[in-house]
Write a protein that binds this DNA or RNA. Structure first.
Length: 684
DNA sequence: CTAGGGTTAG
């Protein structure tokens, strides 16, 4: 080892920090002990403390500090800064007060660390004290100190203090403005954020990538499509076109403004993409109801060797949940375990939600109980799983546990939506009404649109359509589409075309373009034999230019998804499918199945009606499942619309004949068929 | 030795 000067030793310590090499740091320390006399000079000990603290070795850092008799504010600040950078905020503040006890005055480097620690801990009381010190010393006039104090007040919710500080600042730089704009967004004041960005430009400020990202966040939050679009020009002129973070911001912004095409454009034009780019693209697809595309992008990211971060994993899990992609969901769960992110509360909640929405309540339960930490979202995800399955008793038990257990969660708005919806799906009218009526007093939650819709659904599903209508008439708010939609659905099921017409008219007024409502209404008339009315509705749809989304069912076999429409004969194994259908039809007839032609949508001869309901997409998908999925395994089918009554009874017969479990997930619930029975309590 | 930021869950 050549002779090392203090300067070269310091350089060694610095490179240990920049390469995050504790080994190099310790070696340099050993060399310092060997070559230099004790006690340590403050120059080298400052560097040593800095190195240990930055490399998250707080014990060693404190030890060196304690051995340094000539320690100064720089030594202490090196220690505190490292603690803050590594997230040890409480220790950082404790060290800060130890320093004060030694009568060492904090400087313009120390204050920002103390403010950041207070802000991160959401401790305004602490922050205020630090602020007092900074004012007394006159340090508050420093840009760094002032900016971090402002940030602290914003993040701890002391809005007035923050504003005063900002207004009184003697000097502002780009960081100050960025802090102002970002905190306005965090505070839910996007308008303010946009205005201050314009003000910043007006005073001649030159935005950087952080300013652009903050501005885009404001635009995403408030759906300011035009301002965000216009930013593109400025970004190019400022030379930030190739900035990855800014592009990521645009992907997110366009996605949230439902301009998914623009998101894709930005994404595919990027020269460099990082894991956030991929994650933003996945999320943008999920937010635009393109779950399959979200999964495709995710799979592509795997091929590109992108790290499966907690962010990406939770995003893609929510996509799986939305389209019941159990197979992919399971493999993402496995991947999460492999990548050591399954303990993350976002990921864990998404896993619980995914299993719940895919109908695997036991897996959801297991994931829920295995989580190291649970928050309100996790509990609600579990409740949502019970709601999906109509397990009102389980949902209620969980709500009790949540309320009276030693948990740190308090039921909120969504919690009550989940519980009420569990009741409505279980047909537990009395229980549901009791919960609804007591929610304000017992849980302190003001009923909202979703709760009202649950009650209408609860009454409607139980056949009390008139009572549901009376309930709607007494609502303190104007009924929404979900409320009238619940009534219309019930009228269709229970054959109440007059009331259904009222619900439908209200729906058309609120949302004239929605195809679903027209279809339900037309189907309701058709089921009641009111063919003329049914035809009128269909004609109206045509006139206004409403296209009915095609009904389809899909089934996942091995790793591919097979989609079928009604009367579909396009599959490559069509002849086998037809043979299976014919065989089933014979055996079902022997077992006593009678086609229910009131689910035919057109006024045809009886024979034609029978044929129409027989070739519904779910039956074709089921036939394909029977010829491809090995015996013993359940067959899972997903349908984008609601399963019809004839298919429901047909699949009951089929489950008995073939002796297999068949699960159908339609757009409103799960149907688990086994031994000729179905788990649901629905009527058609 | 210091301040501002991007994507996630019901």
């Amino acid at each position: 080892m050549p002779f090392l000067t203090p300067n070269s030793l310091a350089a060694l310590l610095e490179s240990a920090v920049s390469t995050r090499s504790a080994l190099l740091g310790r070696a340099a320390h050993a060399q310092i002990i060997k070559t230099l006399d004790n006690p340590l000079s403050s120059f080298l000990s400052n560097h040593l403390v800095n190195m240990y603290s930055k490399l998250d070795l707080p014990g060693s850092a404190q030890f060196v500090l304690s051995l340094t008799p000539s320690r100064t504010v720089v030594t202490w600040t090196a220690l505190i800064a490292g603690f803050v950078q590594n997230g040890h905020f409480v220790s950082a503040l404790l060290q800060f007060s130890d320093m004060l006890r030694e009568c060492i005055r904090p400087n313009d480097f120390t204050f920002p660390c103390a403010f950041k620690a207070s802000a991160s801990l959401r401790m305004p009381v602490m922050g205020k004290q630090v602020h007092g010190l900074a004012v007394k010393d006159g340090q508050i006039r420093d840009v760094f100190v002032g900016c971090s104090a402002f940030d602290m007040y914003s993040k701890t919710g002391l809005r007035d203090e923050a504003r005063k500080l900002f207004e009184e600042m003697p000097e502002r730089n780009i960081v100050t403005w960025n802090a102002y704009i970002s905190n306005a967004v965090l505070d839910g004041r996007p308008r303010n954020a946009v205005d201050s960005f314009i003000e910043f430009l007006r005073v001649g400020g030159e935005p950087d990538s952080i300013t652009f990202c903050a501005f885009l966040n404001a635009c995403s939050d408030a759906s300011y499509l035009e301002p965000g679009r216009q930013l593109h020009g400025l970004v190019i002129r400022s030379g930030f076109e190739a900035d990855v973070s800014v592009s990521n911001g645009f992907i997110d912004f366009y996605g949230k403004c439902r301009e998914i095409g623009s998101s894709e454009m930005v994404f595919y034009k990027m020269g460099q993409r990082n894991d956030v780019s991929w994650c933003s693209m996945v999320t943008a697809h999920v937010q635009n109801d393109e779950e399959e595309k979200a999964c495709m992008v995710f799979l592509q990211s795997r091929e590109e060797g992108i790290e499966p971060t907690d962010f990406i994993v939770s995003s893609v899990l929510s996509a799986c949940a939305a389209f019941s992609g159990l197979e992919l969901g399971r493999s993402v769960h496995a991947l999460a375990v492999k990548a050591c992110v399954e303990g993350n509360i976002f990921v864990g909640s998404a896993i619980v939600d995914m299993y719940g929405k895919c109908g695997n309540i036991n897996d959801a339960k297991q994931a829920f109980h295995e989580m190291p930490k649970r928050n309100l979202i996790t509990w609600n995800a579990m409740l949502g799983g019970y709601a999906h399955q109509g397990h009102a008793d389980m949902a209620l038990a969980l709500l009790e546990e949540m309320t009276f257990g030693s948990n740190e969660v308090v039921p909120n708005y969504v919690t009550l939506v989940c519980v009420l919806s569990a009741c409505s799906r279980a047909g537990a009218v009395k229980m549901g009404m009791e919960i609804f009526e007591s929610m304000r007093v017992k849980y302190g939650i003001e009923p909202g649109v979703e709760h009202y819709a649950c009650v209408v659904d609860l009454l409607g599903r139980a056949g009390m359509v008139e009572r549901a209508y009376e309930f709607i008439k007494k609502l303190p708010i104007p009924p929404t589409t979900s409320i009238w939609g619940a009534l219309l659905g019930a009228c269709r099921v229970y054959g109440k075309p007059e009331l259904g017409k009222i619900a439908a008219d209200n729906l058309f007024e609120l949302d004239p373009k929605d195809s679903g409502n027209h279809v339900v209404l037309s189907n309701m008339f058709a089921a009641a034999g009111m063919w003329e009315e049914a035809t009128i509705v269909r004609k109206e749809m045509k006139d206004v230019g409403i296209k009915k989304g095609a009904g389809c069912s899909w089934i996942s076999v091995k790793n591919s998804v097979h989609v079928f429409q009604a009367k579909d004969s396009s599959h490559e194994r069509n002849s086998e499918i037809q043979a299976m259908l014919a065989k089933l039809r014979r055996e079902m007839k022997e077992a006593g199945y009678v086609p229910d032609t009131k689910f035919a949508l057109h006024d045809l001869e009886e024979e034609e009606k029978i044929s129409e309901v027989w070739y519904h997409s779910e039956k074709i998908a089921l036939a394909y499942g029977l010829i491809t999925i090995p015996p013993g395994l359940p067959i899972r089918i997903i349908k984008n619309l609601r399963i019809c009554g004839d298919c429901h009874s047909a699949i009951k017969f089929i489950s008995g004949i073939v002796g297999r479990e068949i699960v159908v997930r339609d757009n409103s619930r799960f149907h688990r068929f086994k031994d000729g029975q179905c788990s649901c309590r629905d009527y058609w």
